[in-house]
């Protein structure tokens, strides 16, 4: 009894040693590239530091109090939130629908799968440029196509009047990734379940309801969280799809319209355009906490309400 206990603690210790051995690179990287920087940011957010301040003093949580009274920040968080939600719906609903469509037993599905996924491979800066020209009011292919087909008589200002739509369209274009995740999910469903349902005479809609959806729910939950987090972190596309912000041949970091002035561009504007370092850090810290809390609450709900064979 005694010796067994000792060997188990010995193994436990060895295990822990190995665990940290393998985690060490990540821990080091996390500490150096993320933890220290965000703590530095937190520290700076407690001062009145501006970009080129001559004197800096400690002000405690003053900046945080200001954040809660700042209408602009609230608007940006709201815009980000709306975008993330809509984007999550696109990623989950359309991603799942596409996965179902290419998962049917027809010839050539591999081909379609491949090409639906393809836009996701295009780097995001290139996506921005391609779509900027695609959606341009005067020279854009979409308006040319629509007017050739006689659907519109006057060119539509996609970038100016429907900015949020264009950024969401970019999300839609890159839905292949989500499709792939759901395909992976569909592949985990044992075909015996469907065979059994066939025997019971269940139609395709019923099979979707009683087998596919419950079995795939962990994947839906996963995709919801990940899409939400990525949506909250959207940064570069609003600049590339900003209708007014090309000067010379370049995209400038000019603030996008309200509907796509997300919280990261807002943070960028505060810190780098307006030079409000401390305040910008406070805003981003608040954002971080919001994302974290929402994700954790969400993960908890998802864990309770989905079918899952959760591992470790």
């Amino acid at each position: 009894m005694k010796s067994k206990l000792r060997t188990s603690t010995f193994f436990e210790r060895e295990k822990r040693k190995s665990f940290y051995l393998f985690m060490s690179l990540w821990i080091l990287g996390f500490a150096v590239f993320q933890l220290i920087p965000i703590l530095w940011g937190f520290n700076a957010s407690l001062t009145n530091r501006m970009a080129f301040s001559l004197k800096v003093k400690f002000v405690g949580f003053e900046n945080y109090l200001k954040v809660f009274a700042d209408e602009g920040v609230f608007q940006s968080i709201y815009a980000t939130f709306i975008f993330s939600l809509l984007n999550t719906v696109i990623q989950v609903a359309l991603g799942f629908a596409l996965a179902l469509v290419v998962n049917t037993r027809i010839r050539g599905k591999g081909f379609f799968r491949l090409f639906y996924y393809l836009p996701y491979v295009i780097p995001v800066v290139a996506t921005g440029w391609i779509l900027r020209i695609f959606f341009d009011k005067n020279v854009g292919t979409l308006n040319i196509l629509l007017s050739n087909l006689g659907i519109i008589s006057q060119n539509i200002s996609w970038l100016g009047d429907h900015t949020l739509f264009t950024v969401l369209a970019a999300g839609f274009w890159r839905v292949g990734w989500s499709m792939l995740i759901f395909l992976g999910g569909l592949a985990t469903i044992p075909s015996e379940l469907y065979d059994a349902a066939d025997v019971d005479g269940a139609g395709p809609v019923r099979k979707l309801g009683i087998i596919t959806l419950p079995m795939i729910s962990p994947f839906i939950a996963f995709q919801c969280v990940v899409s939400f987090i990525y949506g909250m972190q959207e940064f570069i596309l609003p600049y590339l799809l900003n209708p007014t912000a090309i000067r010379g041949g370049q995209v400038t970091m000019e603030n996008p319209p309200r509907a796509t002035f997300f919280i990261l561009p807002k943070g960028y504007d505060l810190i780098f355009n307006k030079g409000r370092l401390a305040y910008g850090f406070a805003v981003l810290w608040v954002t971080f906490i919001i994302i974290l809390v929402l994700s954790l609450i969400y993960a908890r709900i998802a864990k309770k309400s989905t079918y899952s064979e959760m591992d470790g």
Partner: peptide, 27 residues
């Protein structure tokens, strides 16, 4: 390696995705 801290580190790894990276640029 199913040690006690495993769950904590796993959560930490996932949480690190949520850091608004603009905050880390200057530091």
């Amino acid at each position: 390696f199913n040690v006690r801290e495993n769950g904590f580190f796993f959560t930490l790894v996932l949480s690190s995705m949520m850091i608004p990276y603009i905050i880390t640029l200057i530091p």
